Amino acid sequence: MIEDHSVKSDRPTKMSARNVNVFYGQKQAISGVSIDVDMDNVVAFIGPSGCGKSTFLRTLNRMNDTIPGARVEGQITLDGTDIYTPDMDVVQLRARVGMVFQKPNPFPKSIYENVAYGPRIHGLVDGKADLDAIVEQSLRRAGLWDEVKDRLNESGTALSGGQQQRLCIARAIAVDPEVILMDEPCSALDPIATAKIEELIHELRGRYAIVIVTHNMQQAARVSQHTAFFHLGQLVEYGVTSEIFTNPREVRTKDYITGRYG
């Protein structure tokens, strides 16, 4: 019997995974993961390197489709619709479930064009004024507008690392997503830039469902309301963050949090 690690919430579940297995060729990377994500709570995935947390994160918007030999079993739903059905529009799915990667990856375009690109190709705008408004709103939500409003025509790659990461978040927000996935978004950043990203996550909570992978347990404790601990491709424990860190149910969780391994 597969243990159900879903956490009950008063808010409707935004994304739900049931008995998810992921294979890379013959190698099984994820085994029997079940989890729910709602709009009200930031979810942090923690665990040692190679435990499967980033692999599982990528199943939530089918990024694993881009890896040769990758195969996903089980069910993952967005608003109750299975995202792995053959007729799912994957481009549209990735607009609804955006991804922010570990290393900032702005396009080699202007700051303005980085943010405008998605709304333009998805047909979300009716002219220049509409596009200008989306760019400004997205940059404001990403906490970047005041820093770049007078240099929108400069290259996005000329920004600092922390600014580039917030630009990538603005780019994800611009297509009006419902879920934002963040794969170690602060690992390449200095402490000041990290603090700005964490503050931004707090501000975005509730407007989007947010899932963050982090190696930094202090960060997980600061930014999330629910935490999932992965080990050797399995979801060992999922619960309220404060309880996971102070009174974990599983010995493996306690050992990891107290530094006995990982």
Rank of each mutant, 00 (worst) to 15 (best):
S160Y: 13
A116Q: 06
P177I: 10
A188V: 09
Y24L: 11
I173M: 12
M39I: 13
V240Q: 11
P106V: 14
S155C: 02
V115N: 12
T81V: 15
N153S: 14
K128S: 12
Q234G: 02
F23Q: 07
Q234K: 15
N114T: 11
F23A: 01
D132Q: 09
G50P: 02
R18C: 12
L124N: 11
I67K: 04
D36W: 05
C168S: 02
S31V: 05
N19M: 07
V251Q: 09
G69I: 08
E237N: 14
P48V: 04
K254Y: 13
K53Y: 02
D82C: 05
S31N: 07
L124E: 15
V37K: 02
L131N: 10
R222N: 10
G123Q: 14
I30A: 01
Q92S: 15
E203T: 15
T81W: 12
D255W: 10
Q75I: 15
P185G: 12
I30L: 08
K14R: 11
G206H: 03
V175W: 02
S160C: 13
L139A: 12
V20Y: 06
D89N: 14
V22I: 06
I201T: 08
F45D: 01
G233V: 03
A221P: 00
C186R: 12
V213C: 10
M99C: 02
E243S: 13
F56P: 06
S49M: 02
C186T: 15
